[in-house]
Design a protein around this nucleic acid. Structure first.
Lengths: 249, 249
DNA sequence: CTCGAACCTTGATCTAGATCAGCTGGGTTG
DNA sequence: CAACCCAGCTGATCTAGATCAAGGTTCGAG
């Protein structure tokens, strides 16, 4: 958190022995474990740029913007989406702390979707050309990038399956739970930072259906929802419902 | 095609000046344009292994198999799919010549799905550890791998949108057309190498719906289908129908 | 050649989930 | 404080596409 308040000057590296590197960033581990030397660290430091806060509703990038950087979420939630020419919004993903946005922009050199902050968002920004160049020297980093990219293919494939509203809602809650847990938050109680409509547009449902499934899950004693607060009261059963959707996660 | 019949001995490199490298492989361009020297070529040659033919219905890998290699399709069509525990088959993709399978296996070190040949299939197999290692020395190759991975994220996202049966069918035909065209085949006439049921499981439809949409598209004069042969008679209109689905392709 | 099996088509009916409509309650504005 | 707004909830109705049922066609095996 001390890191978060520190807005570094991009391009200027620390020279001291003690090196401040963003602890939430998905890359730090890969880099640090590579037996780093001084020069490597300087490269890294030039590479990373802490940006934000973005406030609720503020856009981080927009569809068509030239792609220059990927970013790891440090805090808050980011939603990515596109709007088709009939005005329907298609939500592609929600990104929690520790997760990386912008990976799908590499192939086109443009961001293929919009990214908007759902609450107050802090980011770690990585110039992509630079991190790619660095990756040629740090195999662990290259490996990590491949892993992240591959992971996102799998994530996208989840949604594409042919599942019922119940299965998809259960899977949505179960992954949120897992992802929060992985970051040290409670897996049983968390805040839904997105609206029902966002969830609906993500899961290809109507927002009314999201409401109804929430209600039904609650009447069944699986969850307790109140406004944006949710408690998972029977994670076992949720995971069971979701297992076909999440088979490879 | 002369390449196809040539089953190279893996691990043994040519020494002659003239170097046989698979022309359909997605990596050849990246490697060749990198101002290759002798030693690089030897590495490449060790790396690549031409395998096949796989016959219709033969599996190339199965869900859970340890991941060792990615593969570029040289000829034929590969279908990837998973089966959930209610027996429903979820088709994740069809891979035409020039396209690469196995990229989504990197993150788990296991193939997350099954891959089966839909007709007679020849492959170019690349040991992943080796190609990744080579990529640290050949930036163009690393770039190409990133691009391919990123592309697949986008592809997977297509399916996940909330679109009508017509839109998805049109998008399916339009991408097939584009992909065949990119490989020098006719964009207007090609063979559907997959069954109606495969298409249905890919597009989250019932096979009956696939039949009916084909029929309707044909009655509208947009296509002509007969068994597995299809002719696109009004690609403009198809693309128009598909544009929301394909916005970023 | 017949037989059988897989694939495909077409029609009739059903249903999960969308759409439409109205209401509620908390939060913000003036 | 009232007035309003927007997210969310719930009930009533509608519909795209699934499911069920019944042929038809192609093709390989015997």
């Amino acid at each position: 958190m001390s890191d978060a308040s520190r807005r570094p000057t991009p391009g200027i590296a620390d020279d001291g022995d003690e090196f401040h590197f963003c602890s939430t960033c998905a890359f730090s581990a890969a880099c640090l474990e590579s037996g780093y030397d001084k020069s490597l660290l300087r490269d890294l430091h030039v590479l990373v740029e802490h940006i934000g806060p973005f406030h609720e509703g503020e856009h981080i990038f927009r569809e068509g913007d030239p792609f220059t950087a990927i970013a790891a979420v440090r805090s808050g939630t980011v939603k990515t989406y596109v709007t088709d020419h009939e005005g329907r919004e298609h939500v592609q993903g929600f990104f929690l702390p520790g997760e990386v946005i912008g990976l799908n922009a590499i192939s086109q050199a443009r961001y293929p979707s919009n990214a908007v902050a759902l609450d107050s968002v802090m980011l770690c920004r990585f110039s992509f050309p630079n991190i790619a160049a660095l990756a040629t020297r740090v195999p662990g980093l290259q490996q990590q990038l491949f892993r992240l990219l591959s992971l996102d293919i799998g994530k996208a494939a989840l949604l594409s399956g042919n599942f019922s509203a119940d299965e998809r809602m259960a899977a949505f809650l179960a992954t949120l739970s897992r992802r929060y847990a992985a970051r040290g938050f409670s897996p049983n109680r968390f805040l839904l930072t997105m609206t029902r409509t966002d969830i609906a547009n993500y899961l290809r449902l109507a927002s009314e259906t999201v409401s109804r499934v929430f209600r039904r899950f609650q009447d069944d004693g699986m969850i307790h929802v109140e406004r944006r607060e949710i408690e998972l009261k029977d994670r076992k059963r949720l995971e069971k419902l979701a297992e076909d959707v999440l088979r490879n996660t």
